[in-house]
């Protein structure tokens, strides 16, 4: 009986995984790139989102006199996820840049995929940044049309 149960479980798991859209990747075993990875501080108020869009590392550089940031995120689930994100920028005196306004952008990440979220500072006075991540369902499920989370638009 136990064996039948385990077989059934394995078959169900396989069927479940087969239905997911996880990504297979290939990349050099010894990458030549030498990113400037910086120490980061994370505040996770949505643990489910933190698993779907996990921040792996932050690469910080300069493009001319402008700060350039590349955040690598990974979806640790096997299904695709929609999310929104926003970069905000802080100048040396601690004030947040108001113009141009910080935009929320839509992001999409496949199962087990790693993607980069990049942004360049709006002016040379910027010294720090903050990345905000928001589950797309959060808004749609509570306020948007319909009562259940939607996929895509």
């Amino acid at each position: 009986m136990k064996r039948v149960c385990y077989s059934l479980l394995a078959a169900t798991s396989l069927a479940f995984l087969a239905g997911c859209n996880s990504v297979n990747t290939v990349e050099p075993a010894s990458p030549k790139a030498e990113p400037n990875l910086i120490a980061i501080k994370k505040v996770d108020t949505d643990p489910a989102l933190a698993r779907k869009v996990t921040v792996l590392d932050v690469n910080e550089g300069q493009r001319g006199d402008l700060m350039f940031v590349q955040v690598q995120v990974e979806n640790q689930n096997y299904g695709p996820e929609d999310f929104n994100y926003q970069f905000t920028w802080i100048e040396a005196d601690g004030f947040e840049v108001q113009s141009p306004p910080a935009l929320w952008k839509s992001g999409f990440i496949l199962g087990r995929e790693k993607v980069y979220l990049t942004s360049i500072a709006p002016n040379p006075r910027v010294v720090d940044f903050r990345l905000k991540l928001l589950a797309r369902e959060t808004y749609n499920a509570t306020v948007g049309q319909g009562t259940r989370p939607r996929r895509g638009y």
Binding site: N140, G144, Q145, G152, Y153
Partner: peptide, 11 residues
Amino acid sequence: TKQGQRNAVGW
């Protein structure tokens, strides 16, 4: 690119 059957509030 936008895809769907009708307009929606929020994204």
